[in-house]
Simulated scan of single mutants.
Amino acid sequence: MKKIILFICMFLFITPLFTSYPLQTIAAISGNPEAKMKDSIKSYNLIRSALLKNEPTGTFDTSEVSYKQVGSLIQKVVRENPEILYFDSAMTWSNGKIDFSYTAPISTINKNKAVLTKEVDKLLAKIIKPGFTDFDKVKAIHDYLVTTVAYDQKNYQKNTIPADSYTAYGALIKKVAICDGYTKATQLLLNRLGIENFYVDGYGNGGPHAWNLIKLKNQYYFMDSTWDDPISDVKGTVGYKYFLISSDQLRKGKSIASLTTSAR
């Protein structure tokens, strides 16, 4: 029985493994398992179910996907489901078995996930008011993250970023995150509100970066709450330079001249 080890840590999710696309095609290729992987839906759901339950093992359908190819499917599941916390790597076997490893004990993951779920319910009840349009809801989420979350600059500079900073838990509970945490917190909150959105990655300022693509009134816009949040927080100040902008606007920004976008 053959096996393959996949080191799929959160940082590696923002490496450029796929071709870059203009804005109008991102929506057609991102975040839709039915459209993108119609031949792998069963395996997608099996992997998703196992990871959402923090299971140490899972399975995939060998008639749908090879054990050599299932790594990209695992990546996709984690990228599209921000409720999955602390996934680190996987070992896949040719008989359809997957061994998952996490960066935290299962007891800690279960505890933090419960705390996160409770906080999301509480937060949305607080910031989303009756009569809000989808635009109002997106803005409320953007403003909340910019004003309450601090970029984990200290650990970023030391190359000691903790697992929490890559997650929605880090952003919403610990109030400290890097771009992954901001993006996944946005993704989690928008998912809960039923607003179509996608996790997008690429390059900015010469390094890997992540942000969101959001659909409003049949149009797609980019939103980058990380870059609207200055490293040195100014209380009560919210930036909107990267709030619901087009791909051209995104690329024209001085600090993101080298940015390319990709979606999987």
Rank of each mutant, 00 (worst) to 15 (best):
I5W: 11
L6E: 10
F11Q: 14
F11R: 13
S20G: 09
Y21A: 09
P22A: 00
T25I: 15
I29D: 03
G31I: 12
E34F: 13
A35T: 04
K36Q: 14
K38F: 14
D39W: 15
I41Q: 06
K42M: 13
S43N: 09
A50E: 06
L51Q: 05
L51R: 06
L51E: 04
T57V: 14
T57G: 05
F60L: 08
F60M: 11
D61V: 01
S63R: 14
S63T: 13
E64W: 15
K68G: 03
Q69H: 06
Q69R: 11
Q69E: 10
G71A: 12
S72P: 01
Q75S: 14
V77A: 06
R79K: 15
R79W: 11
E80Y: 08
L85D: 02
F87W: 10
S89M: 10
A90V: 04
M91G: 03
M91D: 05
T92H: 12
W93C: 07
K97S: 09
K97H: 06
I98F: 06
I98W: 05
F100N: 11
Y102I: 06
Y102E: 04
Y102R: 05
P105F: 01
T108H: 06
K111E: 05
K111F: 02
A114W: 00
V120S: 08
L124K: 03
L124E: 02
I127T: 02
I127H: 06
P130K: 15
P130E: 15
F132D: 15
T133L: 08
K137R: 11
I141Q: 10
H142K: 10
D143H: 04
T147F: 10
T147P: 02
T147C: 07
T147W: 13
T147V: 04
T148G: 03
A150Y: 14
Q153K: 14
Y156L: 11
Q157F: 12
Q157C: 02
K158V: 02
K158W: 09
I161M: 10
P162D: 09
A163T: 05
D164N: 13
D164E: 15
S165N: 14
Y166W: 08
Y166N: 01
Y166R: 08
T167W: 01
T167M: 06
A177M: 04
C179N: 09
T183M: 07
A185L: 01
A185D: 01
T186Y: 05
L188H: 02
L190E: 11
L193N: 05
L193F: 07
F198G: 02
Y199H: 09
G202W: 14
G206S: 11
G206H: 09
A210M: 03
L213Y: 15
L213P: 04
K217H: 06
Y220M: 10
F222L: 07
T226H: 11
D228I: 04
V234H: 08
K235N: 04
V238K: 12
K241R: 13
L244Q: 03
S246Y: 15
R251G: 00
G253T: 12
G253W: 15
S258Y: 02
T260I: 14
T261Y: 11
R264H: 07
